[in-house]
């Protein structure tokens, strides 16, 4: 299995695991039910864990992962003139249920001040996009198939995740508590 494949599998387990008690996932040492796929050994450091919200029936059993890599650049890493990293975002699911709508991927700044529609998942439940924000959210919603996409989503959020940079340490923030089970917080 490739590294990406391992990452996908671990991410999938983490996604499935939200319905499980907050304990180590079978076969994945060190990962609690809601600890993050991207922190697993060998997993991409900058992967984005996609967590199901349970708002759409059948989606808890779906598996999803988002990974990022630097956009092509003559400098190895890729940054904008403002110093934001430029990433190619790859989002992939399996097991999404058939619905009357479309699953749509969005990226937003962490404070929701800007929202970009990445697009509708294709038949292979994949999509790719370019992101040039250092900190961002990936949001997957269920939208009406017949409606054009607006500036932001209208349907329910099915999955959501935050870029690794969302875990940036703060002295008063989440740092010391990152290992706490997410079930404490209602998801």
């Amino acid at each position: 299995m490739t590294a990406a494949g391992v990452a996908f599998a671990v991410a999938a387990l983490a996604g499935l695991g939200t319905a499980l008690p907050a304990e180590a996932l079978p076969g994945v040492p060190g990962l609690s039910a809601c600890s993050v796929s991207s922190m697993g050994p060998g997993a991409p450091y900058y992967a984005v864990e996609l967590v199901p919200t349970g708002r759409v029936p059948g989606t808890r059993r779906a598996r999803g992962a988002a990974t990022i890599s630097y956009a092509h650049s003559p400098f190895g890493l890729s940054v904008t003139p403002d110093g934001e990293y430029v990433y190619d975002l790859h989002v992939e699911f399996s097991g999404l249920p058939s619905t009357s709508g479309d699953f749509v991927v969005w990226v937003t700044k962490a404070d929701l001040s800007e929202v970009n529609a990445v697009g509708r998942l294709d038949g292979e439940q994949k999509i790719e996009a370019r992101v040039d924000w250092n900190k961002f959210l990936v949001v997957v919603t269920l939208e009406a198939a017949t409606e054009p996409l607006g500036e932001t989503w209208n349907g329910p959020i099915v999955f959501r995740g935050m870029s690794r940079s969302g875990r940036m340490h703060t002295m008063a923030g989440h740092g010391p508590f990152q290992a706490e089970p997410c079930s404490k917080y209602g998801y």
């Binding site: 922190m39 900058y46 890493l77 110093g83 990293y85 250092n134 690794r164 940079s165 969302g166 875990r167 940036m168 340490h169 002295m171 989440h174 740092g175 010391p176 990152q178």
Partner: peptide, 16 residues
């Protein structure tokens, strides 16, 4: 202690 808080969370690709 400060760095242990940070460990495993996020460190940017480049320290600018």
């Amino acid at each position: 202690q400060s760095m242990e808080f940070e460990k495993g969370l996020y460190v940017p690709p480049v320290e600018w």
